[in-house]
Every structure is written in C-alpha cells, then in structure tokens.
Write a protein that binds this DNA or RNA. Structure first.
Lengths: 96, 96
DNA sequence: ACGAAGAGTAACCGAACGGTGACATATTGT
DNA sequence: ACAATATGTCACCGTTCGGTTACTCTTCGT
C-alpha cells in the first residue's frame, strides 16, 4: 500500500492489526509502546515518532520500502543522454 | 530500499537529497521544516515525527510502500485451507 | 439481562520536540 | 590565500509528546 499521509499509515496499521486478530493492548505490548499511542496512531496522528512507528510495523510483520519516483529526475539526469558525472566525481572525491 | 530503522531512513534521505543536488536548506524549505531538523533526521533521529518525514519524502519525490510480510500469517490463515470467516463476518457486520 | 472485552477519551507530568539565530568547521571555487 | 558555500552544533523557548491511570461507551458472548 502506498502511504502518503499519517492517516494512510493509521488505516494500514489498524487493518493489519485486525487481520492478525490482535487488540490494541496486544499490539502496544508487542511494539513496546502504550495503548494510548496505538489509538492515536490509528487515528492518523501526524506527530507520532518514526521510531515507534517502525517498531509497530515490525510487530505487525510489515515491511517498509522507499523508492525514488520515476517521474522525478535528478538534476544530472534532466539533460537526456547525460552521464551523471557529478555523482561520479563526488564519490571519487569522498575516498580518502 | 527496505527501511528498518531511523538510521536507514536518514541514509536514504541524504542519498536522495544529494542525488537531486539539493543542500539541506533547499530540502528544509521544500519540505516545510527547518534545516536543523533535516540534519537530525539524516543522522537517524528516531523521534522525528512522521508527518514531517512524509512531507520530506514527498519533497524528494520518494514513494513509501507498506507490505505485509509473506512469512507472517494472519491467525485465520494459520490453519491450512481455511476461509477467513472472521473477516467475512466482520465486514458484513460493519454494514449499516 | 448480565458481565467481559475492546475501544476512545481525559488529566497529569517529565521529557523531548522542532524552530530560530548564531557560531564553528569543513569543503569548494577562484 | 581568500571568499563563498555547506554542514554540524549550540542555547533558548514554547509546544507537544508518550506513559499512566481511570473513566465512559459500545459490542460481544452467554
């Protein structure tokens, strides 16, 4: 599922929790947090901390993947047919 | 990229930012946050809030996907060949 | 009809957040 | 060598966090 907002996240977590037949207390314990926090996150709290979110996803057996959108190009790739010379130079420069 | 920890997240964000030839100030502005926050997140701050993280990923043209791990099964699916009768009943129950 | 279980809410509290502005180091281009 | 740029760090501050405990309100099984 593609997650764009905290609300998406909350919906996914709840759905997954229910599918695993856990109640909020179960999940809270497994994720090492409080039931109150689970309630808030499932409601889409945007200020929840990622650390807890990641632990919660782990407790739910959910993996999180990031991918650069094809639509958005790097500056070096905007000119068609270009080699990304800047990145090549950068990575060479960083070696001691 | 699979993200398991806040450190993973930070590394990905930095990598992506550099590829897009943005500095921390650029990204902070685009994501609607402060440069200080970008610094901390790139360093793997586990208590950063997801709302800002999601905005930052958007600013970087990165999509976030969640997927239930195949390994972990729902309770209803543990018994082989079972129909997930609980979920069916639940969804019927929820209709007004 | 009854009690149990799940979910949402409230008040309280210390701890940490994120923004600002300034300063200190790298690192870069000329 | 110099100035410009980028990154990391600091102190300060108002705001909000997350945990705890207790209470309500449904919904459920019996």
């Amino acid at each position: 599922m593609r997650v764009r907002t905290a609300t998406d996240l909350g919906a996914f977590i709840r759905e997954r929790r229910v599918k695993l037949a856990m109640d909020q207390s179960d999940l809270a314990e497994k994720a090492g947090t409080s039931r109150k926090w689970i309630v808030e996150v499932e409601q889409g709290k945007p200020r929840a901390e990622i650390g807890l979110v990641l632990r919660t996803l782990k407790a739910l057996g959910v993996s999180l993947d990031l991918a650069a959108d094809r639509a958005q190009k790097t500056v070096a790739a905007i000119e068609p047919g270009n080699v990304d010379i800047n990145n090549i130079l950068d990575s060479l420069k960083k070696r001691p």
